[in-house]
Amino acid sequence: MNLLGRAEELVLLAVWKLGDDAYCVPIKKHLVKTTGKDWVFGAVYAPLERLEKKGLLQSSLGDPTPERGGKRKRIYKLTKAGVKALIEVKKVEKAMWDNISEGVLEKLL
């Protein structure tokens, strides 16, 4: 399996964490909060659509709400492949950070 891009990885994780409420606005909010960077919608749509194309996410149309000007939400959900991809990411992450004790990097500064 191809490794996910960093943006894809973050978005995938965010979708999973948000559960039933995973559409673009909260995803973006979550990303802004966790990364501390300013994300624009365009930068969120691209990985979302790529992930859907790869079959790691699937989307469905949600209910319209008044604050959305009566427009519907596109709600994303992880597929089985998506969950597997996250496990894979976690494994790789863990392997990469293995044997590196807490605070070692900070000492280098």
Binding site: Y23, C24, V25, K28, F41, Y45, L61, P64, T65, E67, R68, G69, K71, R72, K73, R74
Partner: peptide, 19 residues
């Protein structure tokens, strides 16, 4: 620029705007 057929994207923008 977008192929926003069901208007879900402009909905996202609008939601944030209203907030």
């Amino acid at each position: 620029f977008s192929d926003d057929l069901e208007n879900t994207k402009s909905g996202d923008f609008e939601e944030e705007y209203n907030e």
